[in-house]
Design a protein around this nucleic acid. Sequence first.
RNA 1: GCCCCGUUAGCUCAUCUGGUAGAGCGCCGGACUUUUAAUCCGGUGGGGCGGGUUCGAGUCCCGCACGGGGCACCA
Length: 498
Amino acid sequence: MGGSEQEGGPAGESSRHGLAELIAERRAKAQRLAASDPEAFPYAYPDVEPISTILDAYAHLADGEETEDRHRVAGRIAARRGAGRAAFLDLVDRSGKIQLHARVDVLGKEAFERLTSLDLGDLLGVDGAVLRSRHGELTLRVDAFRILAKALRPPPDKHHGLSDVETRHRRRELDLIANEDTRRRFADRAKLISAVRSYLDGQGFIEVETPVLQPLYGGALARPFTTHHNALDRDLYLRIATELYLKRCIVGGLERVYELGKDFRNEGISHKHNPEFTMVEWYEAYADYEEEARRLEEAVRAAAQAVGYSGELDFSSPWQRVSFAGSIEEATGIDVMANRDAESLRAAIVAAGLAMQTEGLAWPQLADDLLSKHVEPSLQQPTFVFDYPVELSPLAREHRSEEGLVERWEAFAGGMEIANAFSELIDADAQRERFVAQQRLETLGAEESQPYDELFVEALEQGMPPSGGVGLGIDRLVMLLTGADSIREVVLFPAMRD
RNA sequence: GCCCCGUUAGCUCAUCUGGUAGAGCGCCGGACUUUUAAUCCGGUGGGGCGGGUUCGAGUCCCGCACGGGGCACCA
């Protein structure tokens, strides 16, 4: 539907007579039910079993076999067949779907008619005996039932479901009602997050919570959202990363910390980008980026296992490893390390005949563009890209043997970046210089740079142990492990225009 | 921000060159005691918004909104 149509006002309802009538029918039924029985809609319905446990427990039942085993289920009415003196209903809960057999000779005329006059989408609780129909469908013979809630609005099509992408994202509840795939995907998301937490917890990490509202943003190169604190009468930023605060926790001696939560970046929206997204960052004293690469492999493997991933990507260790400069040279023939200023790199790009915007870009942007446009899309299988230029990585420690590089990797899979890690820069004076260099880059045309964070530098001055840190994009990992091609499919309520 | 495509009933979809907009599901009424996209009969409901061209616009033109894809931006 067009987004311009707003619900609510009498004018809006009258222009959609059909829907208004449907709602009126359902509301009248709800009122009749309430009038006929003061307890028509109970406040609770205890001892409900998941449908799937009943399906599993009676998988052995032969066609036509009946039991007197009573079970209680509850869910939403998804379909209804037959009438007269017997009817079949499909009841759906979070775990699955089961058929109900309603018989007038079991329920009596009044209750039978009350049950069969329900609408698709209504919520129903049932006590019944398990049987398998002659057609082989596991079924509950309805012995007693409670109407739990009335759906005033019609549900999506019982067979075709809801396919309109816009409605699926704006009205996620309808998507969840109509599409089992959607329900499963978000259940998988929860399992994946739980697996990552559980992995880190098991490795001695402690989960911490650092400010979302920050006086100064940092830890990534991105534009922030700004907000305002009234009592303090000052502007604050929504965090773009948790990095700097987590490192202060490492300085403080917490040794292994992680935070899993939302970051906010005020940038474009795409199938890979939502303005608020979920990231886990972990930091670990006495480890370097090699150690963290191993950890990422383990964490992702745990996540893949948790959701039973069986797709094309091979997350079994060890992942492919390439170098930043080497992968660019292989893809484009350009040696970025031999062209260390914007002028000469731009010339090399032009000479190579690459269709790329180069005007006004500083060296780091040019080098990063080469990677993201000519290398990243081809990285389908999980791959680490190692050893980035120092200009791109103001928070990473200088490479132990390669001049001009830092010890940093990014992990890619499915043509997307999923993680980023460093041997952390722990030298306070070097960090101060990097911040200054960032400010200089900004004047050379960089859109974003790392703001100078004096409090962070002072924290480093307390002495920080050699450490490794990782940031892993949860939404993108969910995309990969559930086969979603858009981040909007793995975020329950993605950002949409009003 | 730019380019391309899309928007028809509550849902899923039709509607050849401009000429009274159809179906299935749902919902309402009726038949049916093992159906499963139940079936059968009858009924109900619609062109995203705003302009323009035309005797006549869902269809052609312009603008807007929203969505999808791409670019830019963005690790």
